[in-house]
Amino acid sequence: MSGPIDARLADLGLTLPEASAPAANYVSYVRSGDILYVSGQVSAENGSFLTGKIGADLTVEDGVHAARCCALSLLAQVRAACDGDLGRLKRVVKLTGFVNSTADFTDQPKVVNGASDLLVEVLGDMGRHARSAVSAAALPLGVAVEIEGIFEIA
């Protein structure tokens, strides 16, 4: 299906990845009424994980890019949950971002801004959301960023 969100993604030169399957005994998303809970999406691009620790071998800018990739994966899961119709997305409610960073790194919010900014760029006001951005000593597969989301859908 194609709609305004798909058109905006195309205008921005962005392509959503395929929604990934869960890697263990959980599901990629759960719908409860009009609320969609999307499991954490790890930083990946073109089938490869974006790995590393911000503040050690990765810069804030690397982290921002990784967070943008997570946001695209979140939208891919929303699209899958909505049977391919992103037009059913009403708003982004909340993101929780986990940043694989050194103990002295304190710019986790700047990193997670990559996801927040992308969602607002693509969705406008319905992309504005509540958010948490926290440090993690390590993340699955050594990825740089993992972000989970809560969305309202029709």
Rank of each mutant, 00 (worst) to 15 (best):
T59W: 04
K110R: 13
I54C: 00
L119P: 08
L119W: 09
C70N: 07
G47L: 02
H129W: 06
R91P: 05
V42A: 15
G55M: 10
C69G: 08
V93Q: 13
L36D: 07
E121P: 01
R31G: 11
G142H: 04
G40A: 09
L95N: 01
P109A: 06
A80W: 00
N46H: 10
L74G: 03
D125Q: 11
L36I: 02
I35N: 06
S132D: 13
S135F: 10
L139I: 08
L75I: 04
T59D: 01
M126Q: 12
P109L: 06
D83K: 14
V122H: 13
D34M: 11
A67W: 06
C82H: 02
V122R: 12
V143M: 01
D117L: 12
G55W: 05
H65R: 11
V99D: 08
T102E: 07
A130D: 15
S135D: 10
V99I: 11
L139G: 06
V60M: 05
E61A: 15
A66M: 03
D125K: 12
R88Q: 15
G114L: 02
T106Q: 14
S43M: 05
A81E: 03
T96G: 03
D104M: 06
I54G: 00
G114C: 03
M126S: 12
L74V: 03
A130G: 14
V145D: 00
A115K: 02
V111Q: 07
L123D: 05
L141S: 11
G142Q: 05
Q108R: 08
V78N: 05
E148K: 13
V134K: 15
H65G: 06
D62F: 00
L72C: 00
H129N: 13
G55R: 06
G47M: 01
N113Y: 08
M126Y: 07
V145G: 00
E61M: 08
P140V: 00
T106I: 13
N113R: 11
D125I: 00
E45F: 07
M126F: 09
G97C: 06
Y37I: 12
R31S: 14
Y37Q: 12
T102D: 09
R91A: 09
R91C: 06
V93W: 11
E45Q: 09
D34F: 09
D107C: 10
L139S: 05
A137T: 07
D34G: 11
L119H: 09
L118E: 04
L86R: 06
K53I: 15
G52D: 11
D85L: 07
E121M: 09
A71D: 01
M126E: 13
S73I: 05
L141C: 13
V42I: 15
L119C: 10
L36F: 08
D57L: 11
N113S: 14
D117G: 10
G84I: 01
V78W: 09
V64C: 01
T51F: 04
K90P: 02
S135R: 15
Q41F: 02
